[in-house]
Design a protein around this nucleic acid. Sequence first.
DNA 1: CTGAATCCCTGCCGATACTG
DNA 2: CAGTATCGGCAGGGATTCAG
Lengths: 138, 138
Amino acid sequence: MTHQTVGQPGLPDDPCANVVEPTPSCPVEITLAALHGRWTTLVIREFLHGGRTFTELRRALPALSDKVLSDRLAHLTAAGVLDRRRESGWPPRVHYTLTPHGRRLGPVLQALWDWGTEQLPSTETEGAPPTRGASSVI
Amino acid sequence: MTHQTVGQPGLPDDPCANVVEPTPSCPVEITLAALHGRWTTLVIREFLHGGRTFTELRRALPALSDKVLSDRLAHLTAAGVLDRRRESGWPPRVHYTLTPHGRRLGPVLQALWDWGTEQLPSTETEGAPPTRGASSVI
DNA sequence: CTGAATCCCTGCCGATACTG
DNA sequence: CAGTATCGGCAGGGATTCAG
């Protein structure tokens, strides 16, 4: 996405901050691409609690089909978020863990969470009913 | 998405942190929904530099079609990110600005940017070539 | 000037069935 | 056990055209 936030120092004049169309090389796009797809963030959440095997994930997320779970794991592995390790022995098991890079998604998800829990301040036009608060989850 | 990051205090046992399927009421989903869609983050970037009119945005992002720009503005307005104000006079112009809520997307985009610029550390299995660094933007 | 309506096309998601 | 192959449905995105 090629942004730079308000007055924030640190990314003063990155050339990417001026692109005029979506490009996969933009850092914001890279991150959004890593998080892209339904279920992806829920899968990552599971890993923030520790390593998991395919079956453990399937039990943790029963509504997620094998195919999509497989897709997500492959995608996250390719993105450098997960580390895939075949355990020797029988039955064959594959153990996934967050890479150090993947672990640093924690603050990113925290930022997403924080914004999502924020009340919509009634500063838009009138007084928006505060029914969209953070209290009613699921 | 119903996460809670690693050991981070602040969201200790939010009920949403345990959902087993994607739900629109999860804070992470709310934020990702606000950012959802191609061009969306680029549009937000424009607003981090100040208010804009439809035409100004069209000039800033020439490759963005009118329809999609219109869609994005409507979507961001509905999400409480933008404030839409019809300017009286002729020709009719509409001025958009970030709401306070929308302005707080700055840190979120910063977090996304930061993760995207991070080097993939060669700690995954072997030595991954650092060809995916943050240096080559657009 | 600022969109809304329409059409087509592509890519994602889910379900099912099959393999090392 | 841990995936891959295939298919269908549906929503997103782009181009074009029309309206307030």
